[in-house]
Design a protein around this nucleic acid. Sequence first.
RNA 1: AGAGUGGGUCGGGCGGUCGCCGGUUCGUCUUAGGCGGGCCGGAGGAAAGUCCGAGCAGGACAGGGCACGGUGAUGGUCAAUGGCCACCGGGGGCGACCCCAGGGAAAGUGCCACAGAAACUACACAGCCGAUGGCCCCGGCUUGCCGGGGCACAGGCAACGGUGAAAUGGUGCGGCAAGAGCGCACCGCGGCGCCGGUGACGGCGCCGGCAGGGCAAACCCCACCGCCUGCAAGACCAAAAAGCUGGUACUCGGCCCGGGUAUUAACAGCAGGUAGGUCGCUUGUCGAAAGACAGAGCCGACUGGCAACAGUCGGUCAAGAUAAAUGGCCGCCGCCUGCCUCAAAAGGCAGGAUACAGAACUCGGCUUACAGACCCACUCUUUUU
RNA 2: GGCCCCAUCGUCUAGGCAGGUCUAGGACACCGGGUUUUCAACCCGGCAACAGGGGUUCGAAUCCCCUUGGGGCUA
Length: 141
Amino acid sequence: MRNYGGKLKRFNLSKKKRLAKGEQFKAVLARAVCMSNGLLRLYMAENDCGYPRLGISVGREWGGAVVRSRLKRVLREVFRQSQDEIPAGFDYLVMLSRSRSDKSDKAERAREVVRRLSFEQARASFLTLVKAAAAKATREE
RNA sequence: AGAGUGGGUCGGGCGGUCGCCGGUUCGUCUUAGGCGGGCCGGAGGAAAGUCCGAGCAGGACAGGGCACGGUGAUGGUCAAUGGCCACCGGGGGCGACCCCAGGGAAAGUGCCACAGAAACUACACAGCCGAUGGCCCCGGCUUGCCGGGGCACAGGCAACGGUGAAAUGGUGCGGCAAGAGCGCACCGCGGCGCCGGUGACGGCGCCGGCAGGGCAAACCCCACCGCCUGCAAGACCAAAAAGCUGGUACUCGGCCCGGGUAUUAACAGCAGGUAGGUCGCUUGUCGAAAGACAGAGCCGACUGGCAACAGUCGGUCAAGAUAAAUGGCCGCCGCCUGCCUCAAAAGGCAGGAUACAGAACUCGGCUUACAGACCCACUCUUUUU
RNA sequence: GGCCCCAUCGUCUAGGCAGGUCUAGGACACCGGGUUUUCAACCCGGCAACAGGGGUUCGAAUCCCCUUGGGGCUA
């Protein structure tokens, strides 16, 4: 856990660190390495900016505007505070793992977990995914 | 104390820290611009559904009508409305109060299943009576009349028909051959008059004996309202590629005009408007600023009004994103429940709840969703005094 | 964001605009039986639906209103 009371490492997240156009999303999806666990799904692709960039996509199946905005904020905050722990020079496209059987009670419960997603959960999940994806990317090269 | 009705308010708060969006200002590098810092502002009562009404923008348009859509008691109110207020009528509730698209069925068309004689149509069908006439039989006798019985021929009647959601007004008494508003009483209905009310309508009185079923959220008729499309409206800037014109070279030609071919990796211009961007777009206008003025703007007080609302005065100026900002973490307080200390106030411990929901051009309403808390007015029941 | 449309058995649909024996019809699927040595095909029978809530009406799948859930067009 990060020490908030002591010396702080400060991160910003300005607009150029975001993926902002449909074309950019498509480009990442075309070139990316894909990894997923039970919670998140990560697409990771090299860019030539020298810094990491983030894109988030949350579909309608997760709830209304309130729920989706909250999920996006949490994921954005995770990315912001993890910038020094992930490889720079990559684009990261984060989505939520699709629950396959849409109408079962199990999927409904999984969706409830996602709606109540906490910051620490999301952060841990994201970091393990990045590590795995980075390993996969270097192996492929 | 319990049960309930109507209306209104709030929708956790404070601090620290790291961020995000917009505005403004300062510093710095500097061509635009980038980076860093300060200050200010940054979701809701429903921001939602997109059900109405406006502003705004573009298009259409002499005027009028048709068509289409909407609304529908009355009187107000509002920029406007299908909203809101008051009142009337009908229905529900013991009551506070709630609900109602609530014009027209003697303009026309259509429908009314099943059941029923019949669903709007006839002096129908089934039926009742047959007093009065007529015919037949019996008795009496004063021999053409009386009495009794029968027929259902003339004729009279519309109660009865038990089905249905609905059947030519209902109940009771009288009346009659049988009956019938045929007569009467009460209720309902219609017409007239008077009174009250701006009006819908209500009250009272008189008269009429009853007009004639329902459905218009069926077509329709009447009255009133409504042009169409929507900020992805619309305005501006404008890459690339292609196009056109010019230029250049060659050619037809004595030369100009003109035509043809080539060049487009030698170049210029052009409109169109795509990708993309800016404005619209966050109160507006004027002003250097202070400020002033204007807003269907918001808040409060007063006045008028039963009220919706209006007027005056004072204060206030309020998010502006576009893969879409308003968040993460920490601490404290607050809310509910239980236990303990305690006369109470209060304190301590443990557990729990924190809903519905996210601006997308802007307003006024309506509808729908919602944890919990509070306030005001009122009704009914029970107990005590 | 704006503007529209739709909802009927497990699936595709008829009925709706002219409300009534519509306890909603048909096809495919499923189940049971028959036929066949067996299977297929065929025949007979069965199961199974008006998205939810109000209103109008004597009566609503149908007409009106409100929700819910799908789908389309528009840069």
